[in-house]
Amino acid sequence: MSRYTGPRLKVMRALGTELPGLSRKSLGDRNYPPGQHGQRPKRKSDFGVKLIEKQKLRFNYGLTESQIQRLFREAKRSKAPTGDKLLELLESRLDNFVFRAGFAPTTIAARQLVRHKHVLLNGRSVNIPSIRIRPGDTIVLTEKGRKIPCAAESLVEPALSRPEWLSFDEAACKATVTRLPDASEVPFPVEIQHVVEYYAVRI
């Protein structure tokens, strides 16, 4: 399954949640599903509830279904609780680090910066958004990257406040990982147990 490239606000309305990694837009008064019958109350099935929680992760982090399944398998093999480990793995992606550091307005924009080699990881040019970050890792934008409008605007006004698991040096425009992200620091509401139950019968 390929990555979603359609209307982002429509996705957030369907899921009933604002996803900062997907879009900076707010649901505002339209906090109901899109479509002709969106404002009518609709009872969700148990499967529907679990699917929504899984889709929140997929769209916020901009992953394909196969990528999330691969991370779930890795989380399941861990000694830590599967749900918490899955969230840690998602938050530990390089493109998410670029976004949470305030270098890009969304995770999608952060992936583009990484893909086009505008991000230096520990002083080296990289172009793989899925690289796993570790404590002590640092990122900076290249001179060319800092001149990109979306990056320049995001540095002035980040989409989210920077999390406690990274430190930011404004003078050097450098972000450093101080510790691994915690599951409680995910910037949107998600019932991770529903995600675990969704995949438990499918993987």
Rank of each mutant, 00 (worst) to 15 (best):
V11I: 15
M12T: 13
R13C: 02
L19F: 06
P20A: 10
G21Q: 00
S23I: 03
Y32Q: 07
P34I: 02
K42V: 12
F47T: 08
L51K: 02
L51V: 09
E53T: 05
K56T: 08
F59H: 13
L63I: 14
E65M: 11
R70D: 06
F72A: 03
E74V: 15
P81V: 11
P81T: 09
L86F: 04
L87C: 02
L89C: 02
L89T: 02
L89Q: 02
L90S: 03
S92N: 07
R93V: 02
N96S: 07
F97E: 01
I108Q: 03
V114S: 07
L121R: 05
P129T: 00
S130L: 09
T142E: 06
E143S: 13
G145D: 03
K147D: 08
P149G: 11
A151G: 10
A151C: 10
A151S: 15
E153S: 14
P158V: 02
A159K: 08
D169M: 09
A171E: 14
C173S: 12
K174I: 01
T176G: 09
T178Q: 11
T178V: 15
P181K: 00
V186M: 12
P187N: 14
P187F: 11
V190Y: 03
V190W: 04
E191H: 13
H194W: 09
V196I: 13
A200S: 14
V201K: 13
V201T: 11
